[in-house]
Design a protein around this nucleic acid. Sequence first.
DNA 1: CTTCTTGCAAACCATTTGCATCATT
DNA 2: AATGATGCAAATGGTTTGCAAGAAG
Lengths: 148, 148
Amino acid sequence: MTHAIQVFAEYLNSKDLKLTKERRAVLQEIFLHPGHLEAEDLAHNLRKKRKRASRATIYRTLDLLVESGIVRKVDLGHEHSHYELELDNPHHEHMICLKCGKVLEFSDKAIERDLNRLCKRSGFEPSSHRFQIFGYCDRCRKAREQAV
Amino acid sequence: MTHAIQVFAEYLNSKDLKLTKERRAVLQEIFLHPGHLEAEDLAHNLRKKRKRASRATIYRTLDLLVESGIVRKVDLGHEHSHYELELDNPHHEHMICLKCGKVLEFSDKAIERDLNRLCKRSGFEPSSHRFQIFGYCDRCRKAREQAV
DNA sequence: CTTCTTGCAAACCATTTGCATCATT
DNA sequence: AATGATGCAAATGGTTTGCAAGAAG
């Protein structure tokens, strides 16, 4: 956390931007909820603590956090974006159930190796990629099979 | 194409829905443009041919085409959805450049195998998954490196 | 004090929906 | 004729933006 604030402060400084209490509060809130969070959650949680920040500010701050490399924007197949810590959070990918939305984080050496090989062959930069798998978890698969 | 119309007609029939000229036109248009298309393209292309169909109808038809297994909805990381043929189109995945949007289709035996293993281990249904890789293509990577 | 920030409300944009009218079966 | 389908225009929902008022350096 201390580290992150420092990184953020440096990033802001380098762009002649200011470290306001709203920006600080958003970053702090992200640290308090390690899961995959959405803008709405932040607004809600901050409000509960009387540390209000408007949606506009939250979205603007999230952009800055992404630019500074502290936060990662992830697509979990919902209509809205999710965010998760990038800093000090080991590299991983997401597997998402198309039915119930269940998210599984994983990282797999063999797949990473194959992906790198594939990227290299295809004119894509290896190792900076990020990928997600959409499918059905066992529970939902069973429900689907019964429905048919 | 003939095959697809037949599948569509059967699907519609099974649901007591009708094969209208608009639905036929949308399906035909999808066959004329094999790439990854978006609803907007369809509207535009159909209009040029004086085979108008409202956005509402296009979206409604796309839903039906997806349900009937003729078309697949793909997420290429844009704010809007893309669609591609599913029927008679061999299984493949997408690699998308985060900067220029370039899309590469691929299918990789080794990765598929690893994915299946991973799914099985993680309580996800193997082999029904679909995944996409986001990264930077070489051209954009070079541009990025120069910018920094 | 100057420049950047905030909050608000309006704007956006892809997609969805209610409803009256029109077209398949 | 009866049930669905269409087009329109309005609604939706997440996100963005213009602008006047406020705060950080």
